[in-house]
């Protein structure tokens, strides 16, 4: 298999390793809920082959959880001169570049799991239809600094719509 899509000579800034915990715990919870929910028909009806669904779901989630550390390592962002570049994904790799001037607003979100390990999620919203760039797993301090940097950069390069 060839190497993954990437920008040549890019120096990516990674996100906090602690984000692995958030991601893994989140997956674990969804995995358990879904597996239990899909196994209800098997338990109630006693039809053996219906068990295929919860079992395969369980396996998918276990593989997913095992891959979490690598997936978190694959998340990276980079502040270039005029734009913010963000990449994520192992299987489905996505690299996005957003000029600073396109910023409409910056959100900082903190879920319960994020809060437990002291992380934040930064959302960079543009006028585009797609949700924009979401950088997860930033330490709180970093997220706030990054937000201020981005706002300042966007202010200096303000563009229309």
């Amino acid at each position: 298999m060839t190497e993954r899509l990437d920008l040549p000579g890019a120096e990516w800034r990674g996100v906090s390793r602690k984000y692995t915990i958030v991601e893994a715990v989140g997956l674990l919870i969804t995995g358990i809920v879904l597996t239990v929910a899909t196994s209800i028909p098997t338990v109630l009806t006693g039809i053996q082959w219906l068990a295929v669904i919860p079992v395969s779901l369980g396996i998918i989630f276990i593989i997913n959880i095992a891959l979490t550390p690598r997936r978190v390592r694959a998340i990276g962002y980079m502040l270039r001169e005029d734009d913010l570049v963000f990449r994520r994904g192992l299987m489905f790799r996505r690299v996005v570049a957003v000029p600073y001037g396109r910023m409409q607003l910056v959100d900082i979100n903190r879920g319960p799991l994020d809060r437990a390990v002291g992380l934040s999620e930064l959302k960079f919203v543009t006028a585009a239809a797609s949700a924009g760039v979401v950088i997860p797993g930033l330490p709180e301090q970093d997220a706030e600094e990054l937000r201020d940097t981005l706002v300042a950069l966007a202010e200096s390069r303000r563009a229309g719509l």
């Binding site: 993954r4 489905f92 690299v95 996005v96 570049a97 957003v98």
Partner: peptide, 13 residues
């Protein structure tokens, strides 16, 4: 607004 490039497993192969 922004530019992105994407690939999935098939495209990568």
């Amino acid at each position: 607004q922004s530019v992105s490039m994407n690939e999935g497993p098939l495209l990568r192969r």
